[in-house]
Design a protein around this nucleic acid. Structure first.
Length: 901
RNA sequence: GCGGGCGUGGUGAAAUUGGUAGACACGCUAGACUUAGGAUCUAGUGCUUCGCGGCAUGGGGGUUCGAGUCCCUCCGCCCGCACCA
């Protein structure tokens, strides 16, 4: 009786399916565990072996927790709105809803093959009206809320509106609405988009390559448009603080902190000579105020033209056109080159009343801070280089500072700084801010690098905004009862007029009695910002999620996904969580308790070497004897690096008559590790691997490859080791000739020790997501049991339970063959019995001066002096002692012994 | 430039608090069983040396009885951010 994995896997997959084995009840009496994967965007090319890595890890963890008695929520769904489907639709004319459905079905088939324990009844699809109804509903909550900085939380907009009307009784309703728009968490404002005139459409950053459109290579400009935004900047501080209480990888927390980019400093106004305008600057070093030698404005700063004197006008215009001619890429790349231009105007130093020249320079960005800086050459690298280049003064303001140097340290005493002399940066900054506030020319200011999140897309395939514009062009929210606002079916997805999205072409849909509908749609991250909540209560048509149910399931205990979502998705969903929490809809304000970033599985590309101007290929080891071109060949044509020549010839007609120069009668390809990609022919499809080796082997091999968070190359050859392990396991239970052979004899202590050591190691490894070493331990265990020829029930049953999370199909099969009638999924996880792990003997490594020279076996409870005597009497030790007596002996009980000479 | 991470055999990788470096596999070498093997089993496999031994965790230095692990320094690779005031 052989291990027929295909039959076994199909059989149990349909059994579990029919028996609804993976159905999860909202059973509040049991302890819960929520194990979540970042759901996939179902792309047209299907899954490759890299995608399921995290899914397998989470599946193992979920199954383990279930065996441990937890009620485990482990769902899967699809992030189904988005740009690629629309692009594909434009190219092929197929409606996105159709291709999306096809892709989802393919994904589901591929996932089903791997044997995940998803409760498929809870599946979500962000493009399903039953789902996006609630995305729209949450949008309305955002729209109808504001962030109260006094309480540091979101509150309904009504409270603000009432106050506003009281305070400004003369305002019209339109004026009130305009003012409220400055507070709403979802709001409209003007901003720039990538506009492509030739395509008549707005492009995503991805679609712009080197300043031209990816499709067609047309020029792309910045265009100002009115758009929806989320006021995520109001949550900046709470998003930062929240990082302290979640278990995310440090690198990821750091990325989020960088993205938020909080900096504390001061904002102050500089008066302008011969003008009543003021220049507002932001600085993190108010203490260096006496080192200011010039001001720099961004070339795009609104005061530039006003400040430019007639004598400088030509130069300034010239400089400005130079700056606009430079792409953002160029401005970033050449950061050594110093450029700038004097405006001709002067500002007045707030304390010394000295004249300070005002310059413009591309190194000051319009979008950061106030778009203007006070330049302190003594304390800032860039200001210093700028001053040197344009021969501006470099006042010395730090104790011990040489002339013509820059020092950006903060813990240094100030000189030549009037009332700040002898104070360090920290104290001086406080004093300056106090003085600025006293004199009404500045204040303490916290600045963030993070911008509010753009929430509009001029696209078809996304959630429509539940908003229309009335006769005053004021946005009006739909009533909750009118949700969902369905995305109308359209045959053409080309851009609408004036940069509007495709929906603008659908006049029937746009024009309603109350006004005109919003034609933008929501971005891809809308649906994914809250999907973890919907899994809890997926069929609720009264609410997005029942509060008692979300109270029970609560935070996601473990969230697994790629690091590419480190800032976008995770920050947005963290913000949405906080808003829902503030408004009282859920009871936690961080969605994910613990997060693991799985590494990428890279492809191992196969290369062939074609002799130049020929159709002859030379094997890798001989390629240096010829002049060759490298050709990528499909890695699936190879067994390891050995090419299947027939498959290769059949691949493309021009290779039919290829000839080969072989090594030992074989053609060996070169190998190269790089990203899995169609272009490099190094994609391995899990379906093929499962067909050849089975899902259990596939699951275990993915884990065996290495630590979950590390990137590593896929090597199909290595899978055979794991496959052999499962066959070996099978043979412990099943004799090829006689079938099942299980003994009910009492196991020996040695056999128990093997089992309990494995229970301990594997359990500990699963808790730590060290699944690669857990797989190793199973191999060690089975190797040991095989050596003992152990086929005893009392050992094998617990072993099967232990292994079920990794290889559910073979375990269920063997479990039933052993005579069990209930599913192994309902078994109880085995406990470690430490008694079996006690050793009374230990083989000590004996080191002389730290180098291991021999081993000696002692009873664990033998007194130290007796052990030492025995060690010194040992032949090998005697030899190394060369008659000398040891200086000392280091004895670590149960570890090692070191004799120091 | 800044921040985070990493560097161990031919390959993927192991190594609790500093305590036998290379577990477990792949590959390779030999052998057994077989009509056959891409099945299975056995033995070997870091480098070096006939051997005793010596050398080995990116390089150099330090702390320690003892360092892959801790400290300093240099080099290389990966990821993220980048003229952020």
């Amino acid at each position: 009786m052989q291990y027929h994995f295909r039959e076994i896997e199909k059989k149990w997959q349909s059994f579990w399916n029919q028996n609804k084995s993976y159905e999860v009840k909202n059973d509040f009496n049991k302890p819960k565990c929520y194990v979540l994967d970042m759901f996939p965007y179902p792309s047209g090319s299907g899954l490759h072996v890299g995608h399921p890595l995290g899914y397998i890890a989470s599946d193992i963890f979920a199954r383990y927790k279930k065996l441990k008695g937890f009620n485990v929520l482990h769902p899967m769904g699809f992030d189904a709105f988005g740009l690629p489907a629309e692009q594909y639709a434009i190219e092929t004319g197929q409606h996105p809803s159709i291709t999306t459905e096809q892709n989802i079905n393919r994904y589901k088939q591929q996932l089903r093959n791997i044997g995940f324990c998803y409760d498929t009844c809870r599946e979500v699809n962000t493009s399903d009206p039953h789902y996006y109804k609630w995305t729209q509903w949450i949008f309305l909550k955002l729209y109808n809320s504001w962030f109260n900085h006094a309480t540091q939380k979101a509150e309904p907009i009504e409270s603000l509106k009432t106050k506003m009307i009281e305070q400004n009784p003369e305002w019209s309703s339109v004026e009130i609405e305009n003012e409220l728009m400055k507070y709403r968490l979802a709001y409209r404002a003007e901003s720039y988009v990538n506009w492509c005139e030739a395509l008549g459409t707005v492009l995503a950053n991805d679609e712009v390559i080197n300043g031209v459109s990816e499709r067609g290579g047309h020029p792309v400009d910045r265009k100002k448009m009115s758009q929806w935004f989320l006021r995520i900047t109001d949550y900046a501080d709470r998003l930062l603080e929240g990082l302290e209480k979640v278990q995310f990888p440090e690198s990821l927390k750091e990325m989020q902190r960088n993205w938020i980019g909080k900096s504390v400093g001061a904002e102050m106004n500089f008066e302008i000579e011969n003008s009543n305008k003021k220049i507002k600057v932001f600085t993190t070093r108010p203490d260096t105020i006496f080192g200011v030698s010039f001001l720099v404005l961004a070339p795009e700063h609104e005061l530039v033209s006003e400040l430019t004197t007639s004598s400088e006008k030509e130069k300034i215009e010239h400089y400005k056109s130079y700056v606009t001619s430079r792409s953002e890429r160029e401005r970033l790349a050449e950061n050594k080159k110093v450029t700038g231009c004097f405006t001709g105007s002067y500002a007045i130093h707030p304390f010394t009343k000295n004249k300070i020249p005002i310059w413009i320079a591309e190194y000051v960005l319009a979008g950061y801070g106030t778009g203007a800086i006070m330049a302190v050459p003594a304390g800032d690298e860039r200001d210093f280089h700028f001053a040197q280049h344009f021969q501006l003064p470099i006042p010395i303001i730090f104790k011990g500072q040489e002339e013509q140097t820059v020092n950006s340290e903060k813990n240094i005493e100030l000189i030549n700084s009037d009332f700040l002399n002898d104070f360090n940066s920290f104290d001086a900054s406080k004093m300056v801010i106090q003085k600025l506030e006293d004199e009404g020319i500045g204040k303490k200011k916290i600045n963030y690098r993070m911008r509010d999140a753009g929430f509009s897309r001029q696209r078809y395939w996304g959630e429509p905004f539940p908003v229309y514009y009335d006769e005053n062009n004021t946005p009006q929210a739909l009533l909750e009862n009118d949700l969902p606002l369905l995305l109308p079916f359209m045959q053409s997805y080309s851009a609408g007029p004036n940069g509007k999205g495709p929906l603008a072409n659908n006049q029937e849909w746009v024009n309603i009695p109350q006004g005109t509908r919003e034609t933008d749609t929501m971005p891809g991250y809308a649906g994914s910002s809250w999907y973890y909540l919907r899994y809890m209560d997926p069929h609720n048509d009264k609410e997005f999620c029942d509060r008692t149910i979300s109270d029970y399931w609560n935070q996601v205990d473990v969230y697994i996904g790629g690091a590419e979502h480190a800032v976008g998705h995770l920050l947005y969903s963290r913000m949405w969580c906080k808003v829902l929490y503030d408004l009282g809809y859920i009871s936690f304000d961080e969605p994910y308790k613990k997060l693991i970033n799985q590494g990428m599985i890279q492809g191992s590309s196969r290369l062939m070497y074609r002799i130049k101007q020929s159709n002859t290929f030379v094997s890798s080891g001989l390629k240096n004897q010829y002049e060759t071109d490298e050709i990528y060949v499909d890695c699936n044509f190879c067994d390891g690096v050995q090419l299947d020549i027939e498959k290769f010839k059949a691949w493309r007609t021009d290779f039919q008559n290829a000839t080969f120069i072989l090594e030992n009668g074989k053609y060996y390809c070169g190998a190269q590790v790089e990203k899995m990609s169609k272009r490099l022919y190094n994609i391995v499809n899990p379906d093929d691997v499962i067909e050849e080796f089975g899902a259990d082997t596939f699951r275990m091999y993915e884990m065996f490859l290495g630590p979950i968070e590390m990137s590593k190359p896929w090597d199909t050859k290595g899978i055979e080791g794991v496959h052999r392990f499962l066959k070996k396991l099978w043979r412990i239970f099943i004799d090829e000739q006689n079938g099942l052979s299980i003994s009910n004899e009492k196991p020996t202590n040695e056999e128990f020790a093997i089992l309990h050591h494995t229970i301990k190691k594997v359990t500990n490894d699963i808790e730590n997501f060290a699944l690669n070493t857990a797989v190793s331990q199973f191999m060690i265990c089975v190797n040991d049991l095989q050596k003992q020829q152990c086929n005893k029930r009392e050992i094998l049953e617990p072993l099967l339970i232990l292994l079920t999370p990794f290889a559910p199909h073979i375990c269920e099969e063997l479990w039933h063959l052993m005579g069990n009638t209930h599913s192994i999924l309902d078994a109880k996880y085995p406990e470690v019995n430490e008694e079996y792990l006690q050793k009374n003997q230990f083989t000590y490594p004996i080191a002389i001066n730290g180098k291991t020279r021999t081993e000696l076996n002692f009873a664990v409870d033998l007194p130290q002096n007796e052990i030492e005597q025995n060690v010194l009497a040992d032949e090998v030790v005697q030899k190394w002692l060369e008659g000398k007596s040891p200086k000392k002996i280091i004895f670590v009980k149960g570890r090692m012994i070191n004799v120091v000479i």
